[in-house]
Design a protein around this nucleic acid. Structure first.
Lengths: 189, 189, 189, 189
DNA sequence: TATGAATGAGATTTCATTCAT
DNA sequence: GATGAATGAAATCTCATTCAT
C-alpha cells in the first residue's frame, strides 16, 4: 500500500502553519510553511488540497485542542464558583502555554477564509464545554443572560485576560484573579 | 502655498480602504481600493507613499473617530454609574453606526502591518478618554484594578457586546444593558 | 515466462487516455487517466514509460483499429464505385461508432508529441488500405492524381463528413451520400 | 492620460502566441509568449486578462485576417467557376503565406479553450464570404447541398490542400488545381 | 508488480510600486 | 498632480515522474 500519509508530516505542516499565520495572518505563504515543515512545496498539497483547507484544518485543530483542554477531568470541587474558576484557569493556562496557537487563532477568526461551516462545526464541538459552564452559572446568574455570558463573554474575556497576562507576566496571578472576579461578580443575578 | 493634495481624495481612499480591509483584511489590493475611491492606481501612492502607510493611517483615522466620539460633551449626569453608562452607550452606538470601520479595525489590530508606533500614538491619543472613565470608576472599583479595567477590559467588552448586538439586533437593549451590568458589577470593589 | 503485465489494465489505460485526450487534448494529466482506468498513478508508468509513450501508443492503437475496420472483408461487389462506397461507409460508420477515439485522434494529430516515427509507422500500416482504394480508383481517376486523392483527400474528407453527420444526425444519409458523391465525381478523370 | 496601451505590443503578443501555439498547442506558456514578445510576464495580462482571452483573441484575429483576405476585391470575372477558382487560390495563397497562423488555427480549433461564443462570432463574421461562394455555386451545385459544400467542405478541403502543397511545394500548382477540380466537379449537380 | 506519497520545476495570475505621458 | 501601463517577484497549485513500501 505504498507509503502511507505521515501523521508526523501533517502535524509538522499544521505547526508550521500556526507559526506563520500567527505572525503574518492568512497571507502566510504555502511555500514558507512547507519549507518550515521540512517538506517540499508540492507535498503540502497532498496533505491539504488547498491553502484554504489548510487554514480551516488549522482553525479546527486549535479549537479542538482548546476544547479538549477545557473538558479534561476536574477535581471534584464543592462550589460552582470554584469549579468555574478551575475552568477559567484552564483557559488562561492554555493560552499562556499555546501563545502561537492563540495568535494564529485570532488571525483565523477574523479571516473570511475560515468558512461558516468550520465555525459551526467548532460551535457544535464545544457544546459540552458550554454545558459545563452552564452548570456552574445555574443558580448564580440570571437565567435569561446565561447564554449571553457563555457564548459571548466568557471566552473573549479569557482571551483578553491572557493578552494582559502576556503583556505583564509578573502580574499574572492578579490579572487572572481580576478577570475572573469581573466575570463572576458581573454575572451574578 | 497650501498643500495641493485634495482632502476629498484622501478621504475617499481611506473610506474605500476601510470597506475592502473590512472584508478582505490587509490583503485588500491597492488597485481595488484606488478604483473604489475613484482615483487611479498611481494616485493612491501620491497620498500614501506605501500600502503600509495607508493601513496605518486608516487605523489611526478610525481610532481617532472613535476617541472623538467618546469625548464629545456629555449631559451633566449625577452619578458615576450614569456617566459611565453614557460612555458605554456611545461605544455601542459608534460600533453599530460604523460597522465597516469596526470590521476594518479588527483586521488592522491583528495585523503586524500596523506598527507599534501607530499603536502607541493611538494609546496616547486616548488618554483623555481613559481619564474620563477613570473618574467614573474612582470610588467604585478597587484602585489597583482600575488600569486593568480600562486598558484591557472596557473597550474589548464593548466590542464583544457590539458583536452580540449585531448578531441579534432585536435584543439590542437587553444585550447593551447586560454588557454594562457585567462591567459595572464586576468591577465593583 | 510470458509478460506478466495485464493486457486488461493496458487497455483500460488506453481507453481512459482516449476519453481524456478527446476532451482535454494532450494536456490530460496522467493522474486523471490512471484514476479513470482504475489503476494507481505509478502503475501507468509500468505500462507506458512516459506520457509521450502513452500518447503515441494511443495514436497507433486508434489508427490500427481504423485500418483494420477498413480491411475487414467486403462483399464481393461488382463495380469499383460500389466497392469504394462500401469503404466510405466503413469510414463513416467507424467514426460514428468511435466518437471519442476520433476526437482523441484529432487532438493527437495536431500534437507534436506524436512523433514522426509514429506517423510513419501508421502510414506503413495503412498500405493495404491504400491499395484497396487504389484499385477502386484505377480506371476512374487520373493516374497522376490517385496518390493525392488517397493520401490527402479521402480520409480527411471522411473526417469532415463525420463531423457533419455528428452535427446533424437526422441528415446522416444525405450527408454521407453527398460526401461520397463529391469525392467520386470530383476524382473522375 | 498616462501611457496608452500599445497596439504594437498587443500585436507582438499575438504574433508570439501564434508562433508558440502553432508548435506547442494551447500548452504554450504565457511566460514564453511574453518573453518572445519582448514584454514582461505581467504585461501580457494587461493586454489579455487571462490566457484563455489571449487564445480566443488569437483565434479571432487569424480568422478575421483570413476572412478579409477572401473578401478583398476580385477582378470582374466572367464565369462562376473562374470566380470560385480565384477564391480558392486566395485560400491557398493565404495558407502558404501564413503557415504559422494556420498551424496555430488548427490547434485552436481542436481546443475547448476556444469558446463556442468565439466560434459563433467567427461564423457570423464569415457570412459575406459564404455569400460570395454561394453565388459561385448557384446554378452549378444542387441547391440542397450548397450549404453542405460551403460550411463543411470548402474550407477544410482548402486546408487539406494547403497541407499537401506545404508537404510538396514543388507540386504546388498541380495540387492546387487538383483540389479545386475535385471540389468543382464533385459539387456539380 | 502495484501503490501512492514525495518531489520540484513550471504554469497562471496578482500585486505594490515606478515612471513615461 | 494625475494617470495607468509596465514590471518582475511572489503566490497558489499542477504534474510527470520516482521510489519506498
Amino acid at each position: 500500500m505504498a507509503r502511507p500519509l505521515s501523521e508526523e508530516k501533517r502535524q509538522a505542516l499544521l505547526d508550521a502553519a500556526a507559526e506563520f499565520v500567527a505572525n503574518l495572518g492568512t497571507a502566510a505563504s504555502t511555500a514558507k510553511i512547507a519549507k518550515a515543515a521540512g517538506v517540499s512545496e508540492g507535498t503540502l498539497f497532498t496533505y491539504f488540497p488547498t491553502k484554504d483547507d489548510l487554514l480551516n484544518q488549522l482553525f479546527l485543530e486549535i479549537e479542538t485542542d482548546l476544547t479538549e483542554t477545557m473538558l479534561a477531568p476536574y477535581p471534584a470541587d464543592d462550589s460552582a464558583k470554584e469549579r468555574l474558576f478551575a475552568v477559567w484557569n484552564r483557559l488562561i493556562d492554555w493560552g499562556l502555554a499555546h501563545a502561537t496557537a492563540r495568535k494564529a487563532l485570532r488571525q483565523l477568526k477574523v479571516s473570511d477564509r475560515v468558512t461558516v461551516e468550520s465555525r459551526n462545526r467548532c460551535h457544535f464541538m464545544q457544546r459540552d464545554a458550554r454545558t459545563l459552564v452552564e452548570e456552574c452559572l445555574a443558580g448564580h446568574a440570571a437565567p435569561g443572560r446565561i447564554a449571553f455570558y457563555i457564548d459571548t463573554i466568557l471566552f473573549d474575556l479569557a482571551d483578553i485576560s491572557i493578552n494582559a497576562v502576556t503583556a505583564k507576566p509578573q502580574e499574572s496571578d492578579a490579572i487572572r484573579q481580576a478577570g475572573f472576579d469581573l466575570f463572576w461578580k458581573g454575572s451574578a443575578a
